Amino acid sequence: MRRSAVAALAAVLLLPLSACANDAATSAHGAAAPAGRQVDGPKVKIMVGGLDKVIYLPAMLTQRLGYFADAGVNVELLTEPAGVNATTALLAGDVQGAVGFYDHTIDLQAKGKHVESVVQFAQAPGEVELVSTKQADAIKSGAEFKGRKLGVTSIGSSTDFLTKYLAVKNGASVSDFSPIAVGAGQTFVAALQQGSIDAGMTTDPTVANVLDKGLGKVLYDMRTPEGSRQALGGLYPSSSLYMSTEWVEKNKDTTQKLANAFVKTLKWMSTHSPEEIAAQMPADYAQGGPAQYAAAIKSTLPMFTTDGVMPADGPRTVLAVLAAFHPDVQGKEGTIDLSRTYTTEFVGKATG
């Protein structure tokens, strides 16, 4: 009863800030250590906001490479279709860690809760604003969002407020367009195909699928640091392993093991080709075929860090974006202590 009540409360607290990523989550409920690998170490459950999303690729890749086992930690990966659900599970105590967007840590501090990014996977959102091919000549920037139907993962999601930010930055108002919740993956593709949306924000491998079918064109590409700076005014750290600050303080040895494993993976990714990375992942993640999946990974790779360290100016960019629209953050910028939303203690000591 108590856990159900906590979970319900967490869901209410997190409603304004939903998932940042868009692709459909894998149908599997989770993933344990690779077959034949018996790990004699602490057990940790990590909830991922969609195990098959390229932006969260380091989670499953670390498991598949056996790096959790090498680090001496027994990790069970669980999956939910949205980052907000991962955070809800973390707050409820159902898991010890979550893989999702860093911006949740700022949102939660505004609500009086302390969660911190322990390993920063990415320095850019990995999101792409796609315009329907039929509307590509009419929508050249956020200024032309007026009167349009724009697809987002869900209302109140990070794709929602990033879309609003792009509109306002380019002279439009958040009331000038209609955000349409179209979900992710195939539902996003269908919405474009049927004309239910004029444009929308999503991630790989959905981006690769849309472009391959000729259904849309790229308007804003935030899969790279350069794209993030152009669209948002700076680096926007996104995918990360974040955990309760209290849990981290009480379990520093286990946290270090997790950091070791993830940093090792990030370094491995930086020295291997998209095809080699794709080959390590579950076959059913490549729904558009191996070549398309490898291309999706190639397009998204620039967003990832190589060492798990938070980019110096990134948190300020995230705070500025959230403060522009998020009701729980707006007006509280002066009270948010960004230094408490992440730590470099463990990645700085990582032996990966």
Rank of each mutant, 00 (worst) to 15 (best):
V152P: 05
V309K: 13
K164L: 04
A181F: 12
A324N: 12
L241E: 01
K250Y: 05
W247Q: 01
E249A: 15
A82G: 02
Y285Q: 04
K45H: 14
K267A: 00
I155Q: 10
Y293V: 09
A31P: 00
W268T: 03
L232E: 02
G227H: 01
E345G: 10
M269A: 04
I55G: 03
E129R: 08
V115A: 08
L162H: 10
A323V: 07
T202F: 12
V168Y: 02
G83V: 01
A124G: 06
I180K: 14
A294P: 07
N251A: 06
W268L: 04
S240Q: 12
Y56Q: 11
V115I: 15
P282K: 02
G30V: 09
Q330P: 01
G30Q: 10
Q123L: 06
P315A: 04
T187M: 09
L91C: 11
A82M: 08
M310F: 00
A295R: 14
A181Q: 12
A191N: 08
A35D: 13
D137H: 10
P302E: 05
C20S: 09
F101M: 09
V95D: 10
S240W: 01
K111M: 13
G227L: 01
Q186V: 12
M310S: 03
E249G: 12
K53R: 15
T88H: 07
Q287C: 00
L301G: 04
S173R: 13
T265E: 03
T88A: 14
A98Y: 08
P179V: 13
L90D: 07
L241N: 01
S117N: 12
G171V: 09
P125Y: 09
E333H: 03
F121G: 01
